[in-house]
Design a protein around this nucleic acid. Structure first.
Lengths: 204, 204
DNA sequence: AAACCCATGTAAACGGTTACATGATTAT
DNA sequence: ATAATCATGTAACCGTTTACATGGGTTT
């Protein structure tokens, strides 16, 4: 059970689909917090089928290329449910390039940092709008759980926008001096030592 | 310039360090939003040195194994700054297992979802506490930018906790029926079609 | 005496992305 | 005419993780 197969089995548990449809559904429905690429979908399906977790049925079409529609087998359902039912939320993985840039803010002119924060805010606000539109569309009892995930992302986007604004307002007025090129790197070293190790684990 | 090298060059721009110290500094300072493993540190260093971006100097030690302390070269500083100064915040990458579980909530008894949300909330709160302690420690003008990143993570943790609470309160009372095993998967299909494609891009 | 810290790496596997390839049909 | 859609895949590469390996010194 790789991360990609969890998503694929999960989506197939909602509706049987072809690889092509799966790739699109993954992108649309879970791509924001669980990316699955097209190639991976096909690769996973040809791995999962001999394992007996999914089963494809060839569907002949006239005006479209034939396709193979995959459904979960009983073993597939069992595998999915056994993962879903563990109470471990799993370790979230993040990679936020803009945070690294901020962290290294001492190297850049304060004006640039402000500009970057503004860009972060702009993108977060744009995304929040998108997500709000989505929320409206998902106003159906059957979409209750999907709506919760969108709501989570919306709150994150809003929080990001608010943080960027506050951060921009609290920016130090000039360059700070931890750059070793301008002396006193002892304080900088203290910055690392201050931070306790064993910092790993999830944000969420 | 791989993601890992950006982090490594950035950390070396603060203080020259050995690979060993780098690995720990990476973990402590940026590991939450920019994971870099120990092996990767050593691999990157031996890749970056022949490129002329960093330069190691052997330091003999008596009571400890000898070590090689790496510092940025001028070309290394240039490479780092050219990345830092682009206004593109970069595409954030997420993988949040618990959100996929929520998304697939229809397969699980509502009670279990509630339990999982509570676990999510508990972890988020625990992390928020850790981060608050860190914030206190980083109360020094030289750590202004580091503090901003911690503040971001803190807000995220708080928002996560709040969302989990709200979500738990708004959970549908019984199983919802989009499971194809109990009919009416047409509504489920609509869930996907409703979500517009081209959903990719960053949350932040 | 055992466990951990310092210090440096190697090897193998893994998960994932990007680009490439093909070809019919339908919409602009 | 051109572009996009439907449909399925392959190949190569990339970045990352995990486990293994070694060995002296320090702390408990």
């Amino acid at each position: 059970m790789t991360p990609a197969s969890q998503a694929i089995l999960g989506l197939l548990s909602i509706v049987p689909m072809s690889g092509y449809d799966l790739a699109q559904a993954a992108d649309a429905a879970v791509g924001r917090f669980w990316p699955v690429s097209k190639s991976q979908v096909y690769a996973e399906l040809s791995r999962l089928e001999p394992l007996g977790l999914v089963q494809g049925t060839e569907i002949a079409q006239e005006r479209r290329p034939d396709k193979r529609v995959f459904r979960l087998t009983e073993r597939g359902e069992a595998a999915l449910d056994s993962w879903l039912e563990s109470d471990d939320p799993g370790a979230p993985r993040f990679r936020l390039p803009f945070l690294l840039k901020i962290f290294l803010g001492h190297r850049t002119a304060p004006g640039r940092i402000a500009a970057q924060l503004q860009e972060v805010r702009a993108r977060a606000l744009a995304q929040a709008q998108e997500l709000e539109a989505l929320l409206a569309v998902l106003d159906h009892p059957d979409a209750a759980y999907a709506r919760l995930t969108v709501l989570f992302l919306l709150r994150m986007a809003e929080t990001t926008a608010a943080w960027a604004q506050d951060a921009r307002a609290s920016l130090p007025p000039g360059r700070i001096s931890i750059d070793p090129r301008r002396g006193s790197s002892t304080v900088a070293a203290a910055m690392f030592q201050a931070v306790p190790p064993r910092w790993r684990g999830g944000v969420a």
